[in-house]
């Protein structure tokens, strides 16, 4: 894998939530590019440096799993911009765990340019207090028979707010492609704010795109069942929140990274 540290891009922050001023990070951003040659395979574990941009190029058949953790005790502001171009049969997996932080801005944009390239995004977050999370995730299908699966699940408590824009973009010529997006948000307080904009753009006939979202409170029947088993509502909600985070951690293809993140989750509790 070739790693280069570059000059930061003149990022426009166009995808940031309105009101999130042009954050004064321009000269603090570290811009790193990763190039994986044909057939290479890596798992990367990255913790937020505060502001970072990643330019990733995956050669034919290359495979990169990128795990990014945002800890509750991290810097107030996190800016994380990941841009990926996939060659033929390349795969990019993005695992994003956000355990808190005053303001977090994430962008993950993947161009599935190569034939049969694929992308999965697994995002989980747990926010409370007045924490804000702004997430933009897009899968751009340009190559034939490409696949994407974007999945986000999280928990909002207190006055936390979250905005997720997920886009599956089927460009002309990407015949045989499939894109799926799911979102599952658990709301634990009357003062939370959840905004979701799941977008499917399509200019190719021979594709299949699906999106499903479920947003709301914990299921009352389930809470009742838990209470009959001696688990109060607060504990039940805590278990649900932990389960959502763990459902993403379990998918990380490296047991040592899984353990590291679980330890951070417990430390943050």
């Amino acid at each position: 894998m070739e790693i280069t540290v570059n000059k930061p891009l003149a990022e426009t922050f166009g995808w940031l939530q309105t009101g999130a001023k042009r954050i004064d990070l321009q000269d603090k951003i570290q811009n790193i590019s990763y190039v994986l040659g044909p057939g290479e395979s890596r798992v990367l574990f990255l913790e937020d440096p505060g502001a970072s941009e990643y330019e990733i190029t995956l050669g034919e058949g290359a495979r990169l799993d990128m795990v990014q953790l945002r800890e509750a005790s991290g810097k107030d502001l996190s800016y994380n911009n990941v841009r990926v171009t996939c060659g033929d049969k390349a795969y990019f997996g993005w695992y994003r765990v956000v355990l808190g932080g005053a303001e977090s801005y994430d962008n993950c944009s993947v161009n599935l340019a190569g034939r049969e390239s694929s992308f999965t995004a697994n995002v989980c977050y747990r926010l409370d207090g007045t924490e804000k999370y702004d997430l933009n995730c897009e899968a751009i299908h340009t190559g034939k028979r490409t696949e994407s699966a974007i999945s986000a699940s999280g928990v909002l408590a207190d006055k936390a707010s979250k905005l997720m824009r997920g886009t599956i973009d089927f460009r002309t010529g990407c015949s045989g492609s499939v894109g799926n997006e799911t979102e599952d948000v658990l709301l634990l307080s009357e003062e939370v704010r959840n905004q979701s904009v799941p977008v499917i753009l399509c200019s190719e006939e021979d594709v299949v795109g699906n999106h499903g979202a479920s947003i709301g409170r914990p299921d009352e029947d389930m809470l009742f069942y838990m209470e009959t088993r001696g688990v109060d509502e607060e504990t039940a909600c805590e278990m649900l929140a932990r389960a959502k985070i763990d459902s993403v951690i379990r998918k990380i293809p490296d047991a040592s990274i899984q353990e590291k993140i679980r330890a951070r989750v417990q430390r943050g509790e």
């Binding site: 307080s189 009357e190 939370v192 959840n194 979701s196 977008v199 699906n210 979202a213 947003i215």
Partner: peptide
Amino acid sequence: DTIPAMDIRTNKADVGHEAKI
């Protein structure tokens, strides 16, 4: 193109969305 937006400001609501193309 499908561009749905949801803005939920209470936890005492259930909102579901599905789209297919």
